[in-house]
Write a protein that binds this DNA or RNA. Sequence first.
DNA 1: GTTCATGCAAATCGTTTGCACAATG
DNA 2: CATTGTGCAAACGATTTGCATGAAC
Lengths: 128, 128
Amino acid sequence: MARLNKSDFRDSILELVKSTEAHPTARWVYDNLREEYPSVAIGTVYRNLNILVSEGLIKSIQFDDSTDHFDANTGKHYHFICERCGAIRDLQIPFDPSLEHLVEKHTEYKIHNHRLDFYGLCEQCKRT
Amino acid sequence: MARLNKSDFRDSILELVKSTEAHPTARWVYDNLREEYPSVAIGTVYRNLNILVSEGLIKSIQFDDSTDHFDANTGKHYHFICERCGAIRDLQIPFDPSLEHLVEKHTEYKIHNHRLDFYGLCEQCKRT
DNA sequence: GTTCATGCAAATCGTTTGCACAATG
DNA sequence: CATTGTGCAAACGATTTGCATGAAC
């Protein structure tokens, strides 16, 4: 079996993650990658995803489904999760650092970051 | 071995979770419960924790460590997570429903809830 | 021939579940 | 005797890891 060129392979994974805003899981990447690389092993997908994370090219995010999700949008932003269909969407409302100042005013903590997730129904699901 | 009275056992778990604000894991509950009930199985702890969750007496929360945490504070509140020691603390800053209105103004989503976590260093860890 | 990423399978970790049994009523 | 919660161990799903192999240089 021909060895896969290192950068080709990892680049394909990066392209895949970049191609969607659906915050895919390793399994989704694996399933899609198999169309191009039928012999790929899921362990290899995990390894390369973790390398991309450690290189800062993608981010790993955990939601409430005990499955890692990956996001090529590495900037600070908030998320919406549909409680019915499970869709995870980026939100365009501005990241608000003043929330961190508020916490620092009320506590002794040094705040570096925060995360804000909204739960509800997406356009489709709220109609049914 | 004498059968454990249903409410005694489950109540002990509830008491344990109520006794701390540290957002304990099932394993922590298990380890502490064994002092009083040395023969308890961890599966039983999980079963009872899940029953307490479904009864609305405690909440299950996932953070970034792929382990379920339980919280007897069932009211809406925000969390702080220390990036160094892993401590999870409740925050006293008010829950702000206007954040949900902001999202509804900018999107087509129907928002039911939100979650806000702050990351940084706790009083102890920020000194070292 | 050394390096390095792969496929594969086994291992690991947290959690859930099937089952036989003992206690309750 | 029907019900219910338990201990135990097996099962499970997501992720990681050890190892032999084959490609690249």
